[in-house]
């Protein structure tokens, strides 16, 4: 019995091979570039979780002054207002990642990069910063009179 040829394939042999070749090529390219892309993306680093930091005796901080301190691998700023009250924030400007400083003249926080200003309570009041500074909780250790900084989720308000 003769085999009937059916030339009416919906996909021609050439097209099929083209698809196969193209598909393989594409897969090979993805296989090549995916590891490269992943290699270039830095891995998440394990960070030592810091929930509080001791800044030493409260009397070392003059009135109306500010100071940068390390909070884990983030910079923090502690401010002692003229009222004697301590306030602490993450010192990273919410605009473009610069590090802010205390401006004693206006008793506020200033970022030198783009002239952004926050008031002493960390509220963005002028210039480009879109959000207030992230506050840290400040606790004065009873007895020793030392300053303890804790992140806000450390349940200190």
């Amino acid at each position: 019995m003769p085999i009937e040829h059916t030339p009416n394939y919906s996909v021609s042999r050439r097209r099929f091979l083209d698809l196969l070749l193209g598909g393989t090529g594409l897969a090979a390219l993805i296989g090549l570039f995916y590891p490269i892309f992943r290699y270039l993306t830095p891995p998440e680093q394990e960070e030592a979780v810091v929930s509080s930091v001791n800044l030493g005796p409260a009397k070392d901080f003059p009135l109306n002054s500010g100071k940068i301190f390390r909070f884990g691998n983030k910079p923090g700023i502690i401010i002692r207002g003229s009222d004697g009250k301590f306030r602490a924030y993450n010192a990273t400007c919410t605009h473009l990642d610069c590090i802010v400083q205390y401006d004693a003249k206006v008793e506020g926080v200033w970022c030198a990069c783009h002239n952004g200003r926050y008031d002493i309570n960390g509220r963005n009041i002028s210039g480009p910063p879109p959000r207030p500074l992230t506050p840290y909780a400040v606790k004065i250790q009873p007895g020793a009179e030392e300053i303890l900084i804790a992140s806000q989720d450390g349940a200190q308000g």
Binding site: I68, A91, C98, V100, Q101
Partner: peptide, 19 residues
Amino acid sequence: PFSPAPAGIKPEWYFLFVF
């Protein structure tokens, strides 16, 4: 990395207009 940005910080002149 743990000091405030200095006053008068500026990029190179060809980025200054963006800045």
